[in-house]
């Protein structure tokens, strides 16, 4: 990292970074190292003694059907949310980029769900699909489809996916639109002169040029689905019914605060940590590559 023209005070820089560094140490690095430490410890039933158990906690959770179920649920949930949120946002962004009149109005009307808390988004959709009073649930019943996400795990999954997607579309829309507007008009015009029609231009010119944005958003969406959707799950399904929507983040919370399984929760934390770290590495390596273009 480049050191630029600067100052050579001896004490001042330490005072300046102190607040950030102290908070980081106390609330980030220390707890994270505690999680690492506890993940290789086990407490006796009375909480009196702990002993070193190596990777036993990890082995235990990886054999636990509940955890494997949670992994499976998380995969289904994340893939569905990322695919839906990216696809719909791309469709809307391409449309908004095409229209001449009203583009700004559409933009304003599409971006605000970003501001809605995930938990609140969950409440909105839960109300729509409430089996006894929800408008959509009623409409579905009228069409002969019996909706009750409190009993049906697949329906519960669909509901949280919808709520999570609804909230994320605006974020993806903003980035796709910015990406589309960054494509030089001359390129599109050159393709048009070369005889490529609208569809062909989209598939051969626009989409490839948009792929860095899409890849970046894919990573962000996966991170979102993994970590930022806790509020949706907690407020809509609490992981149920029968653990059908128990994603990893919800399980780590539940095991720590409701089931009080210290070592297991710590091991789960460490696995989650590994997931975030690899996602961050992917993201940064990719960002670096983007800089070199």
């Amino acid at each position: 990292m480049r050191v630029r023209v600067g100052y050579s005070n001896k004490v001042l820089p330490y005072i300046l970074v102190a607040p950030q560094v102290i908070i980081t140490l106390v609330f980030f690095i220390w707890p994270a190292s505690q999680a690492l430490y506890q993940s290789v410890q086990r407490q006796d039933p009375f909480g009196l003694r702990t002993r070193f158990v190596g990777l036993d906690n990890f082995a235990a959770i990886l054999e636990d059907p509940g955890y494997l179920n949670s992994l499976y649920v998380t995969a289904i949930f994340s893939i569905s949310v990322a695919a839906l949120a990216l696809g719909l946002a791309l469709l809307l962004a391409v449309s908004a980029d095409r229209v001449i009149r009203g583009a700004t109005a559409y933009k304003t009307l599409l971006i605000w769900p970003y501001a809605v808390a995930p938990a609140v988004a969950g409440v909105l959709w839960m109300f729509l699909f409430n089996p006894t009073i929800g408008s959509v649930a009623f409409a579905l019943k009228a069409l002969g489809y019996d909706w009750n996400h409190l009993l049906d795990g697949n329906q519960a999954m669909l509901l949280v996916v919808l709520a999570a997607t609804w909230k994320q579309i605006s974020y993806n829309f903003i980035f796709f639109l910015a990406g589309l507007q960054a494509i030089p008009k001359s390129l599109i015009e050159a393709a048009a002169i070369d005889g490529a029609g609208r569809n062909r231009r989209f598939w051969t010119i626009i989409l490839p040029l948009l792929s860095p944005t899409a890849f970046f958003l894919l990573v962000v969406n996966v991170v979102y689905a993994f970590f930022d959707t806790f509020g949706i799950i907690h407020s809509v399904t609490s992981g149920g019914p029968a653990r059908a929507t128990e994603i990893l983040v919800y399980k780590v919370y539940y095991d720590a605060f409701e089931a009080l399984d210290l070592g297991g929760s710590a091991a789960q934390s460490v696995i989650l940590m590994a997931i975030v770290i690899s996602l961050t590495v992917v993201q940064f390596r990719y960002v670096e590559r983007r800089v070199h273009y």
């Binding site: 980081t24 140490l25 690095i29 994270a32 505690q34 999680a35 970590f227 806790f230 210290l262 770290i277």
Partner: peptide
């Protein structure tokens, strides 16, 4: 140190932070 905080959302250090 500041960079590492990116990789440590609350969810991965939930109990010790509490």
């Amino acid at each position: 140190m500041i960079f590492i905080t990116l990789m440590l959302p609350v969810e991965v250090r939930i109990l010790p932070t509490f």
